[in-house]
Nucleic acid binder design. Structure first.
Lengths: 353, 353
DNA sequence: GATTAGCACTCTAGAGTCAGGAGTGCTAAT
DNA sequence: ATTAGCACTCCTGACTCTAGAGTGCTAATC
């Protein structure tokens, strides 16, 4: 058993998969003989297909229809059969153009990524931005807004800018705030927000005891910001594209997937699991391979990204199991790479100060 | 012509509409006689319904089915027939709770509004946040982030916080930036971003000529921020809820509406038109009353909001023409009012500085 | 021994038919 | 003016039937 699959059988499996991916119709022996001339008759192809079905690579929707790939068939296809494609120059420059303008702030970068992935893949796209939690503080600034409120701006080392308004009881002069900002920066730079809660806060409160309660409030706010910003990490696009796929014509088929995508929390846990793998090429999860049951009718192509090899988030494309793996893999790979590159450049700026 | 509709006819129209709204099935004379006992026989009801159809308030999907309200019928219903309902205390406190935590920043308020509207209405919700364009500058702050980049933070009088990273060529000390911040605040407070582009920029460049090119870059960035932030104004939620409605079971029916909602630009122009009306109670736009053709299969209930009577944005619920107008109108009204109230309070803080 | 032509068989999609049910419109009686 | 009665219409779902596609098997062929 487990002997390598014969050359010709592979060719047939590839043909069936290619054809089904592009037509969404079960494909029969006749079709293959006609479209992909491999010099053998439909009858021969039928025999091979019967074998492939027995081995679990193909299945029949009903007794007298053509064959379609099973999840196992798709798996073999992406691992061994699929012709690796790289995306065209036109597409590349399209992507670069999308990034051209907004190279400054990470959130708009993330959003642009979701948009370009959705539009170019014709499926749904997901981009998970960097977490605030655990990020190191790069800069913190208190901005006086009036007699009774202060804007707290925190910039993390990953380039994320968070801000919150804080009501204050006692008037503080701009000079006060500046001095406080300086102290805060001195003490907090490089710590994570989680760190702050404990030791550092206590130290600070002693040091600038006049502002003890102000600091208390401020950290409360920041902690809350961390919590709620996790929801903001997930950006979805191209839902409409997904719904345009024939497998989702009846909305019931799409509902589980849409519900999954609508729940930021689930997306987060799913994608951060898959992005641990790090490095290399995009990861492909096909139908029943997905850990969640509601995703057994779709496939996900994902890749982590981040500056200089560090992983801070992930991008993904979600489509039917009949998705164009070749195109999507190339696209996801290129975009993740491109995004990482941009972030690396941003990061360098920051470390050379 | 145009004599007032007889009492009983109105009762029948109301019954038909109520029933259709809750069952989504065409309703026949028999059903009405059974469910809403108004002491008359099905035959009488039939006669009245025939009249109502002739006058355009009802229509028949096909010759021997029950009746359903036409757009004109719904219009009469919402204007004259619908029993005004106010939302329950439970719901009110649910809404208040949603707002409880995040009273600080306008963007999270807007997002929370979209979420609560979607969940409680069971339809899609749209919230248009305040425009950056045209907003007055309340505060502007330059934050040094390293030797070669500066974070520009702008707070508008509507409470919107925008920020952008700016690469700089020549190193500027924190002190430089502080002085520059002070000058900028002095000169720009109260102007709109549009104003800046012209005269003020020139004056400033002369005054602090050392930073002329820096200022040029900065304003370039801000202008761009204004442009791109228009996209961010629109927040959608509850799309899934909309798709769960029986009229959208075949995705084709929903597509035009989804496409409309996905295009921020269209939503923006549509809603800002309707929010001009200002004040009072929610505006209801039914089916063919909508100016856009792709919306002829849905109804929109919208209301403007803003601090102290000023309109800065709008909220809306989008559902099938068979939507529960009574519930939605009450909900939209309450939420818009609540949101305006919160903003008014925020605004007062700001004007008492 | 592998390949292929031929053929019977199976299954689906779509068209046609039919009965049942819901609802109407009309008429005549109240 | 209202209503009971009834004929009529039209949809819905079940059933049947056919055409077409595709298979699997067998026997002939290379």
């Amino acid at each position: 058993m487990a002997e390598p699959m014969a050359e010709r059988k592979q060719a047939i499996l590839r043909a069936v998969t290619d054809d089904y991916i592009s037509t969404a119709e079960p494909v029969g022996s006749r079709t293959i003989a006609r479209k992909y001339d491999m010099g053998i008759s439909p009858a021969t192809i039928r025999n091979e297909m019967a074998d492939l079905e027995e081995e679990g690579y193909l299945e029949q929707p009903h007794a007298s229809a053509g064959r379609i790939p099973s999840d196992k068939g798709y798996r073999f296809y992406v691992d061994a059969l699929m012709l690796g494609r790289s995306i065209s120059e036109v597409e590349k420059s399209r992507i670069r153009a999308e990034y051209g303008r907004r190279r400054d702030e990470i959130r708009s970068l993330v959003r642009a990524t979701a948009k370009v992935l959705g539009e170019m893949s014709q499926y749904a796209s997901v981009v998970v931005g960097p977490a605030v939690k655990g990020a190191r503080i790069h800069h913190i600034q208190l901005v006086p807004l009036g007699s009774d409120s202060v804007l707290v701006v925190v910039v993390t080392s990953s380039g994320l800018v968070e801000h919150r308004l804080l009501a204050i009881e006692h008037s503080m002069t701009p000079a006060d705030l500046d001095r406080l900002s300086a102290v805060l920066n001195d003490r907090l730079r490089g710590s994570t927000l989680a760190d702050i809660r404990g030791r550092i806060l206590r130290d600070l409160q002693i040091e600038v005891s006049a502002y003890a309660s102000f600091l208390e409030d401020m950290f409360e706010l920041l902690i809350d910001a961390v919590r709620s910003s996790d929801e903001d990490r997930v950006h979805i696009d191209g839902l409409m594209k997904l719904l345009a796929q024939p497998e989702f014509k009846e909305i019931e088929k799409a509902r589980p997937i849409l519900e999954f995508l609508e729940s930021d929390g689930m997306v987060l846990s799913e994608l951060s699991a898959s992005s641990r793998g790090g490095g290399g090429r995009p990861e492909i999860s096909i139908g029943s391979e997905n850990s969640r049951d509601e995703l057994r009718n779709c496939s996900i192509v994902s890749a982590p990204y981040g500056p200089g090899g560090r992983v801070i988030g992930a991008i993904a494309v979600v489509g039917p199991t009949r998705m164009d793996y070749s195109m999507v893999t190339a696209l996801v790979g290129f975009v993740a790479e491109r995004l990482s590159e941009l972030l690396t450049r941003l990061d360098m700026h920051k470390s050379t100060e």
